[in-house]
Design a binder for these strands. Structure first.
Length: 582
RNA sequence: GCCCCGUUAGCUCAGUCGGAUAGAGCGCUGGAUUCCUAAUCCAGAGGCCAUAGGUUCAAAUCCUGUACGGGGCACCA
């Protein structure tokens, strides 16, 4: 309908005004939906826009336009109002088109045909040193819902988890696991301060013992003695000494220990994500960037050499630096430290180049807002490597506070007293957690009210929406009407204010999906569904659906079927079910 | 000090490429059910859109300054 009006306005305007100085094609003819009923259904501001170039009063232009405008069975009235808006009034029966559309496409209503564009979304990517905690929850849902939205909007989407399985923290993880393992033989051994304190490593250690018995403990008195000795070294130095000792003592078994720890933790993370409705189809290991296959240089070396050949690398104080300040970063950044180890940033340069090389049209990173200072150096590296930085997008997610009984829940990662994602899901269900995490703009702080998420009343927006769906299902069950019969009903009977309003709202759904996807604003879906549920509940209370008049009943049930389908589709994009009954 | 994000009703927050009289929920006041799920609905009160300028026919929305709040500024990951 909008396109139709746009086309006729364009035709009229070019007939009226096109000449050597003026061409309508330069201007976008905007058609907006009106809030006020008195203003009609749709409006265009084109007369206001053209007032200046045409050097005429907006109202004068608008009047000239509507004189030429031909009304028909769909557009019943056109008028000029306010400072020069052109308002369009649609016939009541024209609104029903959307219902046919919904019934024809069912679960695919709102889905856009493939545009053959590929997107990579990288998210969560928490360090594989322990289970996910609630701090990861918001980014996880955001990435998951954005992926679903973009798929709905016609993109091919890969969801990737970047596993930081390289460097010192993996050694500390392996060491912590060895200590937990040794404790199964000697309860005098104590965990080190820098180690990973959580209980989860105890069960991993037990599993290791089942497989390897005491093989990694037997004859390893040197390590135990070191652990029990009186230390004069500071914690960091001692940790490094301990790591070296374990590496030496276990020899080739250390790799086994490390991989065992890593695999077990990744399994934990994967399971927690799946239970949360988050399903990455790609897992990318940082360590793969350092592999030198058949003598060829590693991806990290390749990335650095590439920068070097472009003259953006220099050495200072035995370290290798990247001149990121040439590309707007605050200062230059180290790629390889003076002790010979690569920085995390070095991997990340190689990782991002790899993403580019995999041929995506867009590369999206979902990061915690505390990482925003990191973006300039990554962009700098891509620009210095002659990549198109427009392709790289980063969405920053603000922190969420958990609220219980009106008070902020305090957590401390250091002491291991954090609430895990698993615990959250067990407490409020995965669906409620997803909804509450996504029910807010990403760049806004979020207070997650745990009590509200568990509440079964209209105060809980998710229940409110799901209840609307269940209510419709209940009515449809009682009616016992066949769907093919509904198809033949008289849509003109749906002419009350509420019925027209509902149809208009349903009509907006596909555009909403597209907008939410393209602007990375999944929270819009939540607000839309709340509004749709609200107007349905209001309608429910004002009209009876199962009435004597068959035509009237069928048309109303047809409308309800449309509402039901759209609620179901919207919830599905959020990864939430639409219950038949509650 | 520099950089990023925010500031809208008592509270928590929406607000479409700038559009006509700024919205919702909670809370508050008062109502609705012999009937399709009251897990619901209806009505009322509640606003200098932080602040000062600027751009525009038109600004909560765009630009600049200021105040307040959160976050970031490693040879960590």
């Amino acid at each position: 309908m909008k396109e139709k009006i746009q086309d006729s306005l364009k035709g009229i305007l070019s007939d009226l005004y096109d000449n050597s100085d003026f061409n309508v094609d330069q201007y976008v003819i905007n058609i907006q939906e009106n809030k006020e009923k008195e203003h009609g259904d749709l409006a265009s501001n084109i007369a206001l826009i053209l007032a200046k170039p045409l050097k005429k009063q907006p109202k004068e232009i608008a009047n000239e336009v509507i004189e030429q405008f031909v009304v028909d069975k769909d557009i019943t009235k056109v008028e000029v109002a306010g400072p020069g808006f052109i308002n369009f009034f649609l016939s009541k029966s024209s609104h029903g088109e959307v219902l046919k559309d919904i019934l024809a496409h069912k679960d695919n209503f709102g889905k856009v045909q493939s545009n053959n564009k590929k997107i990579l979304i990288e998210y969560v990517s928490s360090n594989p040193t322990g289970p996910l905690h609630v701090g990861h929850g918001r980014g996880a849902v955001f990435g998951s819902v954005l992926s679903r939205l973009l798929k709905e909007a016609g993109f091919e989407v890969d969801e990737e988890y970047y596993v930081n399985d390289f460097g010192r923290q993996m050694n500390i993880l392996s060491t912590s696991l060895w200590i937990r393992y040794a404790q199964l033989f000697d309860d005098q051994i104590k965990m080190i301060k820098n180690g990973y304190q959580g209980d989860y490593l105890i069960s991993v250690a037990k599993k290791l013992k089942e497989i390897k018995s005491d093989q990694f403990y037997k004859d390893k008195g040197i390590i135990s003695n070191l652990l029990n000795s009186n230390r004069e070294l500071d914690d960091e130095t001692f940790t490094d000494l301990l790591i070296d000792t374990i590496k030496t003592e276990l020899d080739s078994n250390f790799v086994y220990l490390r991989n065992f720890a890593l695999d077990e933790i990744i399994d934990l993370i994967k399971k927690d994500l799946i239970d949360f409705g988050v399903d990455h189809n790609k897992w990318f290991y940082e360590s793969s960037l350092y592999q030198e296959k058949e003598g060829a240089e590693s991806k990290v070396d390749k990335a650095i050499n590439n920068l070097k050949s472009n003259k953006f690398i220099y050495e200072k104080d035995d370290a290798i630096w990247f001149k990121s300040s040439d590309f707007g970063d605050d200062k230059d950044r180290v790629l390889r430290r003076s002790n010979g180890e690569y920085t995390y940033f070095a991997s990340d340069v190689a990782y991002h180049l790899d993403k580019y090389d995999r041929g995506y049209d867009r590369v999206i990173n979902i990061w915690g807002s505390d990482h925003h200072g990191y973006l300039p150096r990554v962009r700098a590296a891509m620009e210095a490597s002659k990549r198109n930085i427009e392709k790289l997008e980063v969405v920053f997610i603000q922190f969420a506070n958990l609220i219980r009984q009106g008070k902020k829940v305090t957590m401390s990662t250091r002491s291991g007293e954090f609430i895990t994602l698993k615990e959250l899901v067990e407490e409020v269900t995965s669906e409620a957690a997803r909804f509450f995490y996504i029910n807010r703009k990403a760049d806004q702080h979020l207070d997650f009210d745990l009590d509200l998420a568990k509440e079964q009343s209209k105060d809980n927006p998710l229940y409110y929406i799901q209840y609307a769906h269940a209510r419709i299902c209940s009515v449809l069950r009682k009616s016992d009407v066949q769907e093919d019969k509904l198809n033949k009903c008289d849509l003109a009977l749906l002419d009350s204010d509420k019925e027209v309003e509902i149809q208009k709202m349903l009509k907006q759904y596909p555009a909403l999906i597209e907008r939410a996807a393209l602007s990375s604003e999944p929270h819009l879906i939540c607000y839309y569904l709340k509004d749709l549920a609200s107007i349905f509940h209001s309608y429910y209370n004002s009209e009876k659906f199962l009435v004597e008049n068959q035509d009237l009943m069928n048309s109303r049930l047809y409308l309800l079927t449309g509402v039901k389908q759209v609620i179901s589709n919207g919830l599905s994009v959020l990864g939430i079910s639409a219950p038949q009954e509650m």
